[in-house]
Amino acid sequence: MKKNKGVTIQGMPYDEWKDNEYIESLVEELKANGTNVVVGFFDKLINWGRANSLWPLTFGTSCCAIEFIALGAARYDMARFGWEVARASPRQADYIMVSGTIAHRMAPVLRRLYDQMAEPKYVIATGGCAVSGGPFRKSYHVVQGVDQIIPVDVYIPGCPPRPEAMIYGVMQLQRKIMVEKFFGGANRKEKIQKFLDEHPADSHGD
């Protein structure tokens, strides 16, 4: 194995990625805890499989959702990357692509969908509205970024982001998954738990 290859996928050269520092810091953090030889091997194998078959939850509230449909159609064809199996049920999805504005009334619903997803789960905030509230930030009825409700892994800016940007965003998520510890490492789960403790929600009721 070549040295300094870095975390990359689908043959995209390492230097063309942005945010490499972030991924490297993540790798360093994981390495610092030490890796078991056997478990480390299985981690790699399983993460390779997980990263290449990400199933999204179909969740779109506004304009970005149409670009998400375009992503599934022939020209951008996300099936090339193994993401095409969009599920309508959160129980079967690996990640939720929050595409569109989240209004106050929608916020508890989104949180419930997130809670219903099975671990390991990821969140991508797509478009200005999901990232920060976007053009509606000052509105009385818009959540100023989904990271106030659920923990976000990747942000994709744009209004709406082009399908290419969405592809890049999900590829970043793939990289993140590839360096994760599936066995043993509790690093990620701890962070999520911390977030959830800080943002309590009554979404298990009903």
Binding site: T61, G100, K138
Partner: peptide
């Protein structure tokens, strides 16, 4: 109201070219 963004109220604090978007 699950994607009610309050555009009408936002328009009231913006100039005319700003609210076109």
């Amino acid at each position: 109201g699950y994607v009610h963004r309050g555009m009408e109220k936002l328009c009231e604090s913006l100039a005319y070219p700003q609210m076109l978007h």
